[in-house]
């Protein structure tokens, strides 16, 4: 289950319009053994980033053109859920609340201590990898679900509702024996050993019991 779907090294994008700050942050993160991409403007970042690349984003709030929050919104708009660690010169509360509400990992005030920053980055990376793992699992489940026949797909909600074959046959107006075969084919195709397991899987796929 914990097998990584994406085996790529996480990339930390750092975006700041101040070249000196950008350079020093890059240096710090590299010293911690991280893979860093520095961008001197939001536009530069948006042009260079790839949603498939694992990792996170260290984003300065105050920048000309697009500010940090606008970059966050732009990413959300294209469904990129890359975790963001915000850096700001002066942390004003409304901005930080807004950022956190929209899913920011952290909102740090400059000058930022290395420990704090690296911790935030690590949690962002973990969050990113968990998110990516979960997304990969659901993808797998969807593929399994796609192998079911329509009848099997019809039977599935009844199975996860905990009904007996007899009950299901009665409700669908068919023979108990037939239902028994369908149940076995569903269990086999969905690669589950027990009904409990199938219930958890169906839940991930958003299939509600009948």
């Amino acid at each position: 289950m914990n097998k990584p779907v994406n085996s790529g090294v996480p990339t930390i994008f750092v975006v700041d319009d101040d070249p000196a700050v950008l350079k020093s942050l890059g240096r710090l993160l590299r010293s911690a053994g991280l893979h860093v991409e520095t961008c001197n403007s939001p536009q530069d970042f948006l042009a260079r980033h790839n949603p498939a690349m694992p990792g996170c984003l260290v984003l300065d709030v105050a920048m000309p053109g697009l500010n940090g929050l606008e970059v966050q919104q732009a990413l959300a708009a294209i469904g990129d859920e890359r975790p963001i660690v915000f850096l700001t010169g002066h942390g004003d509360i409304p901005t930080s609340v807004e950022a956190m509400k929209r899913g920011a990992v952290d909102f740090l005030t400059k000058p930022v201590n290395a420990e704090v920053l690296l911790k935030a980055i690590h949690s962002a990376i973990v969050k990113d990898s968990v998110r990516r793992l979960e997304r990969d699992e659901v993808e797998e489940f969807k593929q399994r679900l796609a192998t079911l026949t329509p009848r099997e797909r019809e039977v599935l909600p009844y199975v996860i509702s905990g009904r007996l074959n007899k009950q299901i046959a009665g409700e669908l107006g068919t023979a108990e024996k037939t239902i028994k075969v369908h149940r076995a084919r569903v269990m086999e195709k969905m690669k589950v050993q027990s009904v409990a397991e199938l219930v958890r899987l169906a839940e991930r796929l958003g299939i509600r019991p009948a």
């Binding site: 020093s24 710090l28 010293s31 010169g89 400059k110 000058p111 290395a114």
Partner: peptide
């Protein structure tokens, strides 16, 4: 003052990050 503090924070940020990077190296 906020703006000025930010302006001052920029070099301070760079200094701190550089110094801590050096420590790590």
């Amino acid at each position: 003052s906020g703006s000025i503090a930010h302006e001052l924070n920029q070099p301070l940020t760079a200094i701190l990050s550089n110094a801590q990077a050096a420590q790590r190296f």
